[in-house]
Structure formats: structure tokens, C-alpha cells
Design a protein around this nucleic acid. Sequence first.
DNA 1: TTGGATT
Length: 454
Amino acid sequence: MAAAPGGSAPPAGPGPRLAFSTADSGVGMSGLNPGPAVPMKDHDAIKLFVGQIPRGLDEQDLKPLFEEFGRIYELTVLKDRLTGLHKGCAFLTYCARDSALKAQSALHEQKTLPGMNRPIQVKPAASEGRGEDRKLFVGMLGKQQGEEDVRRLFQPFGHIEECTVLRSPDGTSKGCAFVKFGSQGEAQAAIQGLHGSRTMSGASSSLVVKLADTDRERALRRMQQMAGQLGAFHPTPLPLGACGAYTTAILQHQAALLAAAQGPGLGQVAAVAAQMQHVAAFSLVAAPLLPTAANTSPGGSGPGALPGLPAPMGVNGFGSLTPQTNGQPGSDTLYNNGLSPYPAQSPGVADPLQQAYAGIQHYAGPEGCNLFIYHLPQEFGDAELIQTFLPFGAVVSAKVFVDRATNQSKCFGFVSFDNPTSAQTAIQAMNGFQIGMKRLKVQLKRPKDANRPY
DNA sequence: TTGGATT
């Protein structure tokens, strides 16, 4: 759990050099049992790193120096893993948080131990985490739960330094929060005590309590989101077997529509259906252009250049797509789905590529552009959803809702287009479309504030 | 049966 700042910590197990560990104190093997009672550590205790210790001093020698600030829970001199040599530093945990704070202010850089030429260091160990290790992400909150509710929930586990419920610009909760505790131990206790422990009212599954993303993870997440967006513009080519059956079924459905097309309202649907067959061809074209980590562009900007943002990747990718689009007669609508370097945009809709480049999230298009699809086959994923709806217009996003616990589709999802006409066309074509025993239900997504009394 | 979210 606790790594030495230098990167190597001694094994935490019982050993002759482990002096004041509670784990050992009852065993009596070291003979250094500090007292009759097994010390208990407060849940908000802080593990301290102690540096600039003379190599000649072991736990027993150090104990008196630190004991004057409070009862010691654990004191461990760090040894080299291989040689067993004293590394000149130690980890120190007092039973009480307060003792640690007192020791830190009294000793840190305040005195120099004999034989050392730099003053002693006493500060929270790196493992205590300056931030991320004590900060929790809390998911599956009820939308009506505010900071106070979250605080009440987490209070029993320690001192809460920060508590923020994430909200959309309009102020509605996103159903998640950040909670920062005073120590890593408290944060861990809260995870243990709360994760999955209950389901908040209005939440679709049990409470999620986990360590918040580190900066690095956040960056990665942003990259993935961006890749996902590009993926929606370049529909993910599936291994042929993965959705072939569905694609075939859809093509048959479209063919039937074509044959039946009579009224003026269906003309558009039929025209779109006629383009369905290009989907497969398109996927093959797009395959080598997908922004996967393995796809190192000829210009040499590989995955190593990730933080540099997708410009080189995007430029190369879309640039090389151009000849292909030109070579596909009769596929204007298809290739105008934000894929061409010169997309035909609806008025007032920003270039999706630029939005992706800017890292803007837009799960949903404008009002009237977002579909809610229910009765999806269990095995339908995002990719199948994209493929199914791509023919009707520029798909801005497609998401199948998945139960996190089981990883199973909840059999509904969302598809967003960049314009309402595409959405209507898709409803016309796909609502009621039969797959297996089920019929797809395709309708406009309910706006966020629907059902809300005014 | 209406976006599982990361300051």
C-alpha cells in the first residue's frame, strides 16, 4: 500500500525489524511490543514520512524522539528491499491525527539529527496522497441529492475537506459528486463502507464510490471521448460476423419499404434505404483510418504524441478519405455525415470535427435531433446502433445503455443526429422495425426537463 | 423504458 518516496518500500509483513506494528504487537515476536493495549489508530490518522535519519538509528532509538507528541501506532524504518540496508528514512503513524500534526510542526526542518547535514523531514507520506488518493468519485446519486445529503452520507468516515455535486449548466445534478477526505484511510473506509451499499432513490443502480480519476486518467478519458466522437463520424467497422445478421435484416426491411413506398412521405425513406448498401463498403473504407492507438500515421505522429491533440491524426485521416468519397457515386448523403473534409452542415450547426477537436462533448444534438430507442436486441452495442442509424443522416452520437454491474445492455439507447429531419426520417424508417421477437421503438428523446412541473 | 456521470 505505502510505497517509499524512492519507489521501494520494505515488505510490510512481520519481520524482526518491524518494531511497533500493531499487527505484530500481539504476537510478541519482536519483543518490542509497546504496551499492554494494542494501539488503535484513528480513522483520520496520517502516515508521516520521516527523512534525514542517521543510518545508525533503528526504531527503538527513534521512538523516544517521536513519542513526546503522542502515542505511536506504527514506526517503520525503511530498508532496501534487497540489501536490507537502512535507507535513512521511516514511516511513522500516530494513533491520533493531531499527534502527527504536532510532530510535523515541531520537527519538520526544525532540528538536525547527529551526523546529518540536513534537517529532519517530517511530513505526510507520499502515499497519503496530496489529493487524488483521498478524493472520491461518487456515482449513482439521486438527482435531487445536494452537497448536504452527500456530506451526511460520508461524514461517518472522516473529515470531509470538499464536497461537490456535479451539475449541468442548468443546475440539475448529474447524479455524481466528488468528496475529498482528510486522509487516504478515510477515503478507503468510505469506499468500503458505502460502495454498492445502497441504492439512492431515483438512481438506476447501487451507489458507486471509488477513487476519482487522476489527472492522467482524466486526460485519457478525454482522449477516449474524442475517439468515440470521431468513431461516430467514422462508424466503427465491425468484424463481419458481429452485426451482419442485423445489417442484413435491416437491408431486407429497407427493401420492403422501397417496394411499398408510395406516399410522398416515404419517398425520402426509400431514397435513404437505397443507400443502405453503401454502409458496408463505407466501413471497409474507414477501417484503416480509425484513430486507434495502433494507427500510427505516416507523418510519424504516433500514440506517443497523444497529448498533442488529434490534429495530425485527424488531418491525415480525413485527408486520405477524400479520394474514397470521390470514388463513390451516389453516396453524397452518406458521406456528408461529417465525414467529408467539406461536410454539408445544417445551418447553425458547428462542424462536428471542430467540436471534437475542441474537446466539446455533445452527447445530444439540438432539440428534435435526439432519438430514444427501446427494445434493442440484447447484443446490440454502440457500433450496431451507429450502423443502423447512419443511413438517415449525420450521427453525432450513439449510445447503448449498459448495466455497469453486469455489463449487459439494458436494451435501450440514444442516437443523435445533427438535424431534426434526419431524426424524423429515422423514426419513420425504424420505429416498429422487427428484430427477432421485438419491435424497435424509435421516438424523440424526452427533453431533460420533461415531466418536471413548472 | 429516456444519457453510467470525472471538478
